[in-house]
Nucleic acid binder design. Sequence first.
RNA 1: GGAGUCGGCUCGGCAGUCGCUUCAGUGCUCAGGCAAGGCUCUGGCUUUGUCGCGGUAUUGGGGAGGAAAGUCCGGGCUCCAUAGGGCAGAGCGCCAGGUAACACCUGGGGGGCGUGAGCUCACGGAAAGUGCAGCAGAAAGGAAACCGCCUAAGCGAUUGGCUUCGGUCGAUCGACGGUAAGGGUGAAAAGGUGCGGUAAGAGCGCACCGCGCAGCUGGUAACAGUCUGCGGCGAUGGUAAACCCCGCUCGGAGCAAGACCAAAUAGGAACCCAUAGGUGCGGCCCGCAUCGGGUUCGGGUAGGUCGCUAGAGGUGUACGGUGACGUGCAUCCCAGAUGAAUGACUGUCCUCGACAGGACCCGGCUUACAGGCUGACUCCAUUU
RNA 2: UGGGGCGUAGCCAAGCGGUAAGGCAGCGGGUUUUGAUCCCGUCAUGCGAAGGUUCGAAUCCUUCCGCCCCAG
Length: 130
Amino acid sequence: MTKQAFGKSLRLLTSSDFQVVFDHAPVRASHNHFLILARFNALDHPRLGLVIGKKHVRLAHERNRLKRHIRETFRLRQQSLRGLDVIVVARKGMGELSNPQLISQLTQQWQRIERRAQQQSAHDTSAQGD
RNA sequence: GGAGUCGGCUCGGCAGUCGCUUCAGUGCUCAGGCAAGGCUCUGGCUUUGUCGCGGUAUUGGGGAGGAAAGUCCGGGCUCCAUAGGGCAGAGCGCCAGGUAACACCUGGGGGGCGUGAGCUCACGGAAAGUGCAGCAGAAAGGAAACCGCCUAAGCGAUUGGCUUCGGUCGAUCGACGGUAAGGGUGAAAAGGUGCGGUAAGAGCGCACCGCGCAGCUGGUAACAGUCUGCGGCGAUGGUAAACCCCGCUCGGAGCAAGACCAAAUAGGAACCCAUAGGUGCGGCCCGCAUCGGGUUCGGGUAGGUCGCUAGAGGUGUACGGUGACGUGCAUCCCAGAUGAAUGACUGUCCUCGACAGGACCCGGCUUACAGGCUGACUCCAUUU
RNA sequence: UGGGGCGUAGCCAAGCGGUAAGGCAGCGGGUUUUGAUCCCGUCAUGCGAAGGUUCGAAUCCUUCCGCCCCAG
């Protein structure tokens, strides 16, 4: 039951949190409507940050809709994103996506992030082992 | 029944699962405070009780809009001086009222539109002054005469009769004379129609309509009138969203205002005294503050807390008022986030769901918008 | 969220009540053996959009649209 909660601890809260991820994000997934940046943290849970610019999505209720869906998809697969700080950046045209399109594209990109994070951590541990 | 006008309300419903935020209660944990006791080298250490920031779990409440929007006006609130004086500048503009205030609202007047219910209008002043009107046109403002019309008087030319040779009576022509009817230009050329009048014409005269001024009456007033009198009306053309005049209103910035706690970092901050000069306070001046000197120690970025929601508040009711609204009483508490919350999924029903998301708060205006419910009224048709 | 500014041809722009200058680019032509230079002509719809004031609006007023900047 507690596995799928989404409280304050699962979010990036300060601009320094954001800056750390922007400065060095080894895991990335790019899509032509949005971009996901991720970096390992020292915690046993993931954290999410959102950057939805007014430039790219003009209307406030559209921005809210995007944020809700991003948070929802993140919430439902937070177990597999364990140990990552993630930022989702909106690009132009994201607001034109319908809800089903948005959800399918988001889940695709989350899967890519998970695979790359696994590869990365496997590489790190083997390197440490050597 | 059809067509239409003006309002008011509402913004998918229900069930289940997983989530977000806030408030309250409870359990656990815990920075720390307080009280009492014990030990002690008088620094402290420790036990119990109690309060309890924060975290977490759980239970139960609350959780976007009519436009939350544009930021176009008006306020509250905060700081700047207590928000003051003058100039400059800006806004508003039929009248009366409502209001915290307004550019809003209500009622009334006037113009325009509609058969009507109704709708609509930045609607003070051009008889204080300055300016503007390209092109066209003769002329664009207290003017002028291009074409045209006229030849009565007067003037000039030619000429005839009469003559006492001074003139006098005619004819024809002219425009240097008269005219503003008509033509033409323009957005605009200075009352209209008819009759009279005249050489031709003209408010030149008259009638009716229109206009202006004064009075009277009604109305708080704007204004109105089958009212009375006067004025022929080239008095007084248009433009003030041109300058301007008149009347009224306005100090500036904004919650990223501002107050408090407070790592880092830099050296300053508070109080008293002095006030020439510099700087700041809204554009300027007045005015005020500060820089300067002395004395005393705290100051403040990241971050956090407050401001932050009980209010010109909602609902009901009684009374006053044509109404906007006001007053009294009763009752209710109805978002308060801060990397920023109302969602997702499943099922189901229907009329298949528009525009769209609070960020200090209110009152308006404007713009966007799929529907649904409902009240009052108008016109047309028809039935009984 | 609050505050401020700007929209004139493909680009850079002047004009701010009276038929919208100018430059670059483009197109057509001329000069030249060819090219560059130079000369001439051209850009039917254009003043961000819609209303209003005015005889007349890019210009004045109102509302809307788009873009940019500043304040953490």
